[in-house]
Simulated assay, not measured.
Amino acid sequence: MFYGIEFDGKHSYKDFGLTISNQNIGNPSKVKIQESIPFSNAKYDFSEIYGEQGYDERTLSYTFNVAYREKAPDFYIYQTEILRWLMTPNRKTVLKDDRIPGYYFLAEVVTGPDNEFKFVGGSLTVNFTAYPFKIAELREGNDIWDTFNFLLDYAQDTNFNVVGVLETNLYNAGVKKVYPKIIASSEMQIVLGNRTYTIPSGTTESYDFSLIPGENKIKILGTGSISFEFYKELI
């Protein structure tokens, strides 16, 4: 079995016959905002001033073995097809790595072929600039047991029937805040921490309501059904 990547809906091996000779899934660095105190060795760290630690983008690097073509024109057409596949997206696009099942990256090839693409001895090296975190393909609260990971996953309910008042927990198993999509059958209120959020009937997506990593204790007031759709993000 040959591993590869799926990017912009096409697979490196299945669609282009490219095999991977080397890969490097780079890790993101923290963005630190620090200020020195005059006449002191101490520093203040403002990196979490907006509620969480920020991270730089990460680099995903792959070196592919390029399949041999007997005739030069065929090789250059083949080369052009590969470059068109990699360079066409003008924004971060879903990238799935066969060796990291259950997660995907959001990535884009930014640097042009002159610098990053090198056809030397039948090989091609490409660097993707990616969103700092890999994102789970399955929403939290899914009941697919075959894919459950005891180290990374958390078994929980994210769909609730409410009659009056319901106190429950939502667990964000990722490393950053998530902003769930909330689907409610009627208007409800959610108490999280010291804030109360009014949730209208229908689907709500807002940056006002977020779940921090770990346990989030919530109180739901109203009558009807409500569900929370969110996906964990890991480094």
Rank of each mutant, 00 (worst) to 15 (best):
L170W: 01
E167S: 12
N127G: 02
W145H: 12
T129L: 09
D153K: 04
N149K: 10
D153S: 09
L138K: 08
R139C: 04
L151P: 11
I144Y: 07
Q156S: 05
T147E: 12
T125P: 11
D146C: 04
V126C: 11
E167H: 09
N161C: 05
D153P: 10
N127W: 01
E167D: 14
V163F: 10
I144E: 07
F150E: 15
N142E: 05
N142D: 10
E137W: 03
V163A: 14
F148V: 06
F150M: 14
Q156K: 08
V126K: 02
T147Y: 06
L151S: 13
L166G: 13
L138N: 10
V163G: 12
E167V: 10
V165H: 06
F148C: 07
G121A: 09
N159M: 06
G164C: 06
N161G: 10
G121N: 14
V163K: 12
V165M: 08
E137M: 11
N149E: 12
S123P: 05
D146H: 08
N127L: 07
D143G: 01
T125I: 09
L152D: 13
A130K: 00
S123D: 03
Y131E: 03
T125V: 13
N169V: 07
I144H: 07
I144F: 07
T129K: 12
V126R: 03
Y154W: 10
G122C: 09
N169L: 04
Y131K: 01
E137N: 11
F128G: 04
L124W: 03
A155F: 14
I135W: 02
Q156M: 08
D157M: 11
L151W: 15
T168H: 12
A130V: 02
F160P: 03
L138Q: 07
Y131C: 01
N127T: 12
N169E: 15
T158I: 09
F150V: 15
D143H: 06
L124K: 00
L170C: 03
T147A: 08
G141P: 00
D146P: 04
G122D: 10
K134N: 09
L152I: 07
V165G: 02
T158S: 11
G141F: 02
L124P: 00
N142W: 01
A130H: 03
D146A: 10
Y154L: 01
L152V: 13
L124A: 04
N142S: 00
R139K: 13
I144W: 00
L124Y: 00
T129P: 03
T125A: 12
G121Q: 05
T147C: 08
N142K: 00
R139Y: 08
T168G: 13
A136H: 09
R139I: 03
L152F: 08
G121R: 08
I144Q: 11
T147R: 05
V162N: 07
K134L: 12
N159D: 13
N159I: 06
D153A: 01
V165P: 00
V126H: 00
N149G: 04
L138G: 00
Y154N: 11
F148K: 07
N161V: 15
I135H: 04
G121P: 08
F148A: 02
L151T: 15
